[in-house]
Write a protein that binds this DNA or RNA. Structure first.
Lengths: 100, 100, 100, 100
DNA sequence: CCCGGCGTTAATGCAC
DNA sequence: GTGCATTAACGCCGGG
């Protein structure tokens, strides 16, 4: 029996344990796990679709003459705090000089 | 100038090249690139949100007593062809015996 | 029997198929697979050790006041062709202006 | 100046600050950083080579008729505690039944 | 059209 | 326990 069933079943002693009751309890918990699983699977599917959409755009952009590699670099840059970028750049420059 | 502008400018010769015209052309193309970039960023954001949603469900499931690790294994199994799972299992068994 | 045994066994017909012979063949092939597996496991272990060594150096460097994050950025930069870096930088700048 | 130089320079006030002295201090610290960087780069290179070696073995094994995918599964299994494998298998079975 | 390599992203382990 | 660093998995991309 699943760990999660324990709490659900803790108070069952006071009722006569019928087959029907047991089936219900199992269904309930099976349903709960199944619900989690299916929700996750649904979201994963959506996520995958978005991935495809993104790929499509890169492909289209590429056929318009834009370089996906540069686009990715730009996007990555944009999704960082400008201050952080500046800071890292400064420090990097310092270290770069230090090691020659 | 971006590579992609070339084709767009191929037919521009018939018009006098004014600064205003040039600005327009650049805007058009800037807009095109910007459009690609922003659409991708939008989709990436949605994708990230879905990732968070999935994480949330795993967290909730865990607090219900289900083991995320086992859930992941189950989900992975379900998203494969049953035949493939069977096949891998069989082969794995074979190899396992082979190496002791 | 493993797929790989097929070729090894192709010429076996000319000999009487004894249990001993079969055991030998299986041992040979089991050994081959086992050898592959164990060599890989050995290399993976060495790889892991190197990873630990690297971590140790970062830790020591950090305690000397150097920022591991910047060091990583510098190392990444150094392991790329300078020309490629320059090129990407140039294009990135172009795109950056284009999208504002 | 690098953060790490601070401690090295804390006691410098008592000496006349000569250009030569400063150059030495900087060299010392530059060397230290450079040493870290180069040691890490060396180790990373070795690590990469080991990765290539592993790839080579998989390739060779494949050309001997062994399926790399199955081999990877086996290796992963072997690098886990047998008890843990058993446990996961058991739980997975339980969950599998639960969701149907 | 398949396959190996690469880059990105999630998952585990660790250190604070 | 929370965040981070490493490692493994996944998906994408270019070449044969």
């Amino acid at each position: 029996m699943l760990q999660s069933d324990i709490e659900d079943d803790e108070h069952l002693g006071q009722y006569p344990e019928t087959k029907e009751r047991k089936a219900k309890a199992e269904n309930f918990n099976n349903d709960r796990l199944r619900s989690y699983i299916e929700r996750i699977e649904r979201l994963k599917a959506e996520k995958k679709n978005l991935g495809s959409d993104i790929t499509d755009i890169f492909t289209e952009a590429k056929s318009s003459g834009y370089d996906p590699k540069v686009m990715r670099a730009l996007i990555k840059e944009r999704e960082q705090e400008p201050a952080a970028v500046e800071e890292l750049e400064t420090m990097l420059d310092l270290y770069r000089r230090a090691v020659g």
